[in-house]
Design a protein around this nucleic acid. Sequence first.
DNA 1: CGGCCGCATGCAATCGATTACATTGCTCCC
DNA 2: GGGAGCAATGTAATCGATTGCATGCGGCCG
Lengths: 343, 343
Amino acid sequence: MDQRRKPPTIQDVARFARVSTATVSRALSRPERVSEETRARISEAVQLTGYTLNQTARSLRQRTSNTILVAIPDIRNSFFSEILDAIEREAAIRGYGVLIANLLIGEEPVKRLQQYFLSHRADGLVLLDGTIDIKQLREITAANVPVPLVIACEAIPNSEFHTVVTDNETASERATRHLIELGHTRIGHLKGPKNNIIADHRLSGFTAAIKSADLEFHPEWLFDGGFRMDEGVGAAEQFLRLEDRPTAIFAINDESAIGFVSRLRAAGIECPRDISVIGFDDLEIASHFAPPLSTMRQPREELGHMAAAALIDYLEGDRDDSKAKTIALRSELIERASTLRVQ
Amino acid sequence: MDQRRKPPTIQDVARFARVSTATVSRALSRPERVSEETRARISEAVQLTGYTLNQTARSLRQRTSNTILVAIPDIRNSFFSEILDAIEREAAIRGYGVLIANLLIGEEPVKRLQQYFLSHRADGLVLLDGTIDIKQLREITAANVPVPLVIACEAIPNSEFHTVVTDNETASERATRHLIELGHTRIGHLKGPKNNIIADHRLSGFTAAIKSADLEFHPEWLFDGGFRMDEGVGAAEQFLRLEDRPTAIFAINDESAIGFVSRLRAAGIECPRDISVIGFDDLEIASHFAPPLSTMRQPREELGHMAAAALIDYLEGDRDDSKAKTIALRSELIERASTLRVQ
DNA sequence: CGGCCGCATGCAATCGATTACATTGCTCCC
DNA sequence: GGGAGCAATGTAATCGATTGCATGCGGCCG
């Protein structure tokens, strides 16, 4: 009977309510511009027909898609998926859809992102990937279509982009100082990926703390790692090859810290008995790991929330570009059992 | 100069190539229907103008969005985010965008999903959530618009839906049997959420194994849990209140197993010394946890890949609904240190 | 009383593609 | 030689909403 009947359009509603489609459209988007009486008739007609807006048609006419694109370096990393979660929440509340683009794949991430905007699939972009550099960003923006953009991974100094960040550098300094305060003097760092802004800033924070405590800087105590557990494992193997080892490590994040600790344990080196390790992020696993991991807690949820809100505000506001806003969030030291006072 | 210039349309290309828009459209989508010469002129014009398709306009006309929707119970769970990753990969290759809907939030998840289709934002749905029941699913489909759907969490018996599943029941039986083979006779189960198909099937598998080994079934050894670590912690507290405790646990998944083990450790009960625990999923963390977790490995990547492929095949094929296809994938027992032979 | 204003509404163009149908010109075959 | 058949292309309708520009009408003011 009613199967495959085409979904009702604004035309149907107009017919039922005995008004023009223009009036229906107005009644739905700016009710105050329509008399109370017809408004009532129209909403009755909407009920009756079961009308819902065809978003595609609106997009075509208004040149907006009510969709934002989130570019993520690696969805599988819980850190990002939690931010993504917060972004989706906020977007849903405000009537936006969320498209995802996982950048690990494909050549030319920039091309892929541009494509979304050139084809009018998304109105704006939340960028979580610290590996894209400014020049590439400008390229995205440079295409005929300017791309409303919020960077939500790391501040890019003096940039013209809106930004939501945590205090990576200061927080890294704080984490390292925590190790120093526990009496450690031989401190290493498990580095993040190359050419990644976040990694760069965390390294700076680490170095700053070492310097200001007048500790000697050992380049061989900088371990090549990354944000993933297996990269933490790799760093551990590099560590094991050393003769002269540090007694404490500041790891780029919790995942790599976990990989690191677990690999060392397999080699008979126990954390925190033989080595103290502090991570970054405070993933849920951090508190359940053995040993529970000291770490810098990032306000992930807030980060995602603010990023989405900032982008949508901008999209719906007057797009005053004059000032790029920067919202900075603070991380917090969480002390757990993985860092131990030197005897 | 060239700023804010409107992006080129198919009209512009047509003008440059001195043909009609119809010809341009044909040249781009079905090149063989256009003479070689004009095809060349057109592709030159495309280059010149920098034309890219306006996906919105196409969507409106063709009534397809080239977008799929992925409904996820909890993005933050690595298990799902890994599947999502695989879905996105496959979709990107085939030219589809991926919208996400995190179902934890909001009233009436079904309403939310319907909304996406009623508004023509997505062409099809991959459902990862085992908590929606069939009646609700039918509701999604029952709206005027039929919703192409692939269920990728659990088979729904005799259902009319396309499905990609792992063998939850058999695998759970296998996991439990693993504990039995190690000599355990006092075995409990850390349950999943109520009204969740996956959880139901894993429980059945567990019970089946217990029965077929002629072990006594202890209802008080079924612990209320869920898929999250904190729910594993809750289950551990329930465990601690028992006088008469099991010596082995089959947990609904790795995350809850981790929460469980970590809470017990805090109470002085060590895994595997005092209790053996096996999980499900083989998350990356499972192998790095202390102790490394025995578990049933699910082919997550394949699962996501197959689900996306099946959906897109269906969308692009002749939509032969006559037979709902079911693709079943096998899980694999991974033995690690968290399960120990009874002395 | 006449003109102006503003409210509520309608008419029709518009967004940018796709596609049914029409047209043209050519080949081929009886 | 005439018509069928086909390939290449054009014309214009169409998808479903939004919105600039009328239009009609009533009220208010000088």
